[in-house]
């Protein structure tokens, strides 16, 4: 996965994305035990052009030049199945902006904070997202104050209380 992350770092250095961060199940690996997953979710903060129309074409072209192949909605990139996900709301944008640096082997990368992972999973709301929340609450070191602030800021406190889980 190091080669994959190195290419994502190149993508950011080339200015094709403003910033990226690992989210989803793979991000959970940095806080809890490994669970089976098929892809690496790379959330990308895109630079909005003057036209206001965002396209992933330039990003895909950049990655294809580095050997990526398109497989359905994924990219097979240096031995890892990657899903590029543009930040799509204030919560995912904040999660990418506040992501923390981590190292895999010799390569630096950026991973969403665990409190953002919980909030995104809560907002997405599928059964597997609730399972991920339970796993993270059980195994990760959660900053309760930070989590509550995020939930409040993004209007998720009602869902949180309904879920009735505690860190």
């Amino acid at each position: 996965m190091e080669a994959t992350l190195a290419i994502l770092n190149e993508l950011e250095a080339a200015g094709l994305v403003e910033r990226y961060a690992i989210g989803g199940a793979m991000a959970g690996f940095f806080y809890a035990e490994a669970v089976v997953t098929e892809d690496l979710d790379a959330f990308v903060l895109l630079k909005t052009p003057a036209t206001g129309v965002i396209t992933l074409t330039a990003i895909y072209d950049f990655l294809k030049q580095r050997g990526a192949t398109v497989e359905r909605e994924h990219l097979w990139l240096a031995g890892t199945l990657v899903q590029l996900i543009p930040t799509f709301d204030a919560l995912t944008e904040e999660a990418v902006r506040e992501a923390v640096e981590r190292t895999v082997g010799q390569v630096k990368t950026r991973v969403m904070r665990v409190e953002h992972l919980i909030a995104i999973a809560l907002k997405t709301g599928r059964a597997k997202d609730h399972a991920r929340i339970a796993l993270l609450l059980d195994e990760a070191a959660i900053e309760g104050g930070r989590l509550q602030e995020i939930l409040h800021r993004h209007g998720l406190q009602g869902r949180w209380e309904k879920l009735n889980l505690k860190p």
Partner: peptide
């Protein structure tokens, strides 16, 4: 499970690949 959570990321990735094969 606590011990598995504390493993280095590189070991977790090896476990993931093994889980993908078993899956």
């Amino acid at each position: 499970r606590k011990a598995a959570a504390a493993l280095p990321i590189e070991e977790k990735l090896r476990r993931l690949v093994e889980m993908q094969r078993r899956a």
